[in-house]
Design a protein around this nucleic acid. Structure first.
Length: 739
DNA sequence: GCGCTTTGATTTTTT
DNA sequence: ATCAAAGCGC
């Protein structure tokens, strides 16, 4: 007893709790048991969660391996690991930190055999799922023109998210549509099983199933993970809820952190009521509220509060900040989306030329991705650098999916979708068309062997009518995978990838000499680089783990923090980020709130939360922009300002004018740099621009220490550019010398 | 089996 | 306006 106490107190000194305010401190050092931390934006919630993990280990002497910390994104998991590393050193490695899905996949790899899963299961993403639904529908003789595969998949996803099995769905089905849905769902599950594959939802659903069917396994896990901590609890769905409830049922040491006001994934089955009802689930829960905001100015916070106050589904908080009042929030009415983009660009150019911030301090946020187009064009016109966040996902690139398909087949020959991808999308399938492929599928069905085996049998002993060319093509596919499979035992993973690319002819096929081909090849090399982490052991051992981890990673969209580029992103992808300067554009009825969300009160509340999330990303400067008319799908229509704008008290807003810059009282630094004093362009000069080509200067003047040049580009019209950003090149330097 | 034309849909996307 | 998937002809 005494020894234990001494050990604890000596450990306590090892962990110096970082500066925390009293609320944060209370949450961090709350005794084990159910704990709910309601954390406002910018209140240091991740810090608190991390500090609590450290506290449990260092101060309460809990072994690191008894702790599980769950996040939603890989990025959040990574950040938490890094912070724990700093706080605890090597102890941190033994803590289980990961996303729901990664942790679920890990559990299934380890214990899945109890419910009939091979540890080599593939993880199917949404496009794989859709392909599987189509296959299921085809096998059931359902016409895709009458029921879209998409809507069926939605139905299946909804059922899965609610933990409804095909059997249960069939029992509760009343309409013909529901009966058909249950039928396809059933078939879909059968196909997953055949392919030895799981979809994303399965990673949690099957865990819950495992827990319910195998009390021994569940107990083992409960005793292993005695302390569970969850980030972003407001975004958990029903499966995640069940997963956590089971895991924490025995020891009830569950800490959740979240903010119902920032719940924006309802459409992804997130259930805001999970956090609203936490106290009902755990009546003895200790509740802490983090209400001090360290991020935004008083004005920005006040505007945010005014916006969110109108919602009903909330836990009331008294947010406050010690930060300064700050400049007013700028409100600008643009004529249309082009004008809007011009306004944003000119403001950005102004902020940068006045050195009020760095490009990386600025983010432009919008409701739908389509809005980025006009903004990008304007940024390019102004010579401003930007980075589109979350637009292209690495894992979804065609070439990456192709290479992964090869590897998946090597790892799991039952994965028919991947083999199909190889055959239809790469040089390997040369000479095999839809007809032949149907034969293979059919053969595989009748002999119930996997597809590769079906190819082999057809090549060797298929019907006489089979053309020699087809036979040869099938044989070469089988030989390719036989060779690769054999090589997997002796080569490391990166080497196996090299061999795969070489032997399949994929490398030469991809690098077709075009610039695009080379870029795609670079991406493939990127994938190879990732594989190097798994290089220590033979590929046959590393492959499953590599593939499963890969399926769970989506963020090659990791923000590059060079500071030299500004950011554009949807309001959804802005969650969890913060920027000194934020522009929210397209604040119009129909866009925000989106027209598809306007007839449902709960969806409207979510739109409002989305706006709230956007506003609370801003630290110092916030611009709210809307356009009087907007072109959508080729139709130009007048638009009304968003109803959410009306909730912001007028005294916080300042109507911005265009094109002159607003006065940024309190922010404007005294310019040491007087900027440009003389003109370098004059009317008549011939100049070249990166995107507009050659043109003639029609006017030039000094504006805020920069040179504003008006150029007439033949065929593209007159453009007003800032010389500092536009990188205009003089075409006839001789003439310039005369100046 | 491949390439061109038509058709339809088009919010958000942590995994 | 734009893009992808399906449809159709060679």
């Amino acid at each position: 007893m005494l020894r234990g106490k001494m050990a604890r107190s000596s450990q306590m000194s090892q962990f110096a709790i970082p500066d925390l305010n009293p609320e944060q401190m209370a949450a961090v050092s709350a005794p084990p048991g159910p704990v709910l931390i309601v954390a406002g934006p910018g209140s240091g919630k991740t810090r608190v969660l991390t500090a609590r993990v450290a506290y449990l280990i260092a101060n309460l002497g809990i072994p690191p391996w008894q702790i599980m910390a769950v996040t939603f994104t890989n990025k959040a998991a990574r950040e938490m690991k890094e912070r724990l590393q700093k706080l605890l050193g090597t102890d941190a490695e033994r803590i289980t930190v990961g996303t729901f899905h990664a942790i679920g996949a890990g559990i299934l790899r380890r214990y899945g055999e109890a419910i009939g899963l091979s540890p080599h299961f593939a993880i199917y993403d949404e496009s794989d799922q859709l392909a599987l639904v189509k296959q299921a529908m085809a096998e059931l003789g359902l016409d895709e023109k009458r029921v879209s595969a998409r809507s069926i998949l939605n139905g299946i996803s909804n059922a899965k998210a609610k933990y409804i099995t095909p059997d249960r769905l069939r029992l509760r089905a009343t309409t013909p549509w529901e009966q058909r849905l249950a039928q396809v769902y059933d078939k879909y599950e059968e196909l997953l099983q055949q392919n030895n594959a799981l979809d994303f939802d399965d990673l949690l659903l099957r865990c819950v199933q495992l827990f319910e069917l195998n009390p021994t396994v569940l107990e083992q896990l409960q005793d292993r993970y005695r302390h569970v901590l969850v980030d972003e609890y407001q975004d958990t769905d029903h499966l995640q809820y069940l997963f956590l409830r089971h895991l924490a049922a025995r020891h009830r040491n569950i800490t959740v952190v979240g903010d119902p006001d920032q719940s924006i994934f309802r459409w992804r089955h997130a259930e805001i009521r999970n956090i609203l009802r936490f106290q009902e689930d755990y009546p003895d829960a200790l509740v802490f509220k983090l209400e001090e905001n360290y991020r935004s100015t008083k004005r920005i916070l006040e505007a945010a509060l005014a916006v969110i106050r109108a919602n009903r589904m909330r836990i009331e908080k008294q947010l406050w900040t010690r930060n300064p009042e700050g400049p007013p929030i700028f409100l600008f009415e643009a004529a249309d989306e082009r004008d809007e983009a011009d306004f944003v660009s000119s403001q950005v150019a102004g902020l940068l030329s006045r050195k009020e911030c760095r490009p990386g301090d600025i983010a432009v946020m919008y409701r739908v991705n389509a809005q980025s187009r006009a903004l990008e064009e304007a940024f390019i016109r102004y010579g401003l650098k930007y980075h589109l966040v979350g637009a292209i996902r690495f894992y979804e690139r065609k070439e990456i999916k192709d290479v992964i398909a090869f590897l998946r087949v090597i790892d799991n020959p039952f994965d028919s979708l991947s083999l199909e991808r190889v055959v239809t999308n790469s040089p390997v399938g040369q000479g095999i068309g839809a007809r032949t492929w149907e034969n293979v599928l059919h053969w595989s069905q009748t002999t119930s062997t996997h597809l590769l085996e079906a190819c082999r049998q057809l090549a060797e002993s298929g019907p006489k009518g089979l053309a020699g060319r087809t036979r040869q093509a099938l044989r070469s596919i089988v030989e390719l995978f036989d060779r690769l499979k054999a090589l997997a035992d002796s080569l490391s993973l990166p080497e196996l990838i090299d061999k795969t690319l070489e032997l399949s002819g994929y490398r030469d096929w991809l690098r077709d000499g075009t610039e695009e081909g080379e870029e795609r090849w670079q991406n493939v090399q990127e994938l190879r680089t990732v594989a190097q982490d798994y290089g220590g052991v033979p590929a046959s051992q590393a492959l499953s783990l590599f593939l499963q981890n890969l399926s769970l990673i989506s963020d090659a969209d990791t923000i590059r923090e060079s500071g030299e580029t500004s950011f554009m992103m949807t309001l959804h992808s802005a969650k969890g980020l913060e920027f000194p300067v934020v522009f929210i554009v397209g604040l119009e009825e129909g866009l925000l709130p989106h027209s598809r969300s306007m007839d449902d009160i709960e969806e409207l509340e979510e739109e409002r939360r989305l706006f709230y999330v956007g506003v609370t990303r801003a630290k110092r400067l916030l611009y709210l922009v809307y356009a009087a008319r907007r072109t959508i799908y080729g139709y130009t229509e007048p638009s009304a300002p968003s109803r959410f704008l009306a909730d912001i008290p007028k005294n916080l807003l300042h109507r911005a004018a265009f094109p002159s810059s607003p006065q940024l009282a309190g922010f404007k630094k005294e310019a040491d740099d007087p900027g440009l004093q003389t003109l370098t362009f004059r009317p008549g000069d011939r100049v070249a621009h990166r995107t507009f080509g050659e043109g003639t200067v029609t006017a030039a003047r000094l504006v805020n220490g920069d040179e504003e040049v008006t150029v007439l580009f033949p065929g593209r019209g007159q453009k007003v550019l800032l010389a500092r950003y536009a990188n205009l090149v003089h075409l006839d330097p001789e003439r310039n010398k005369i100046l």
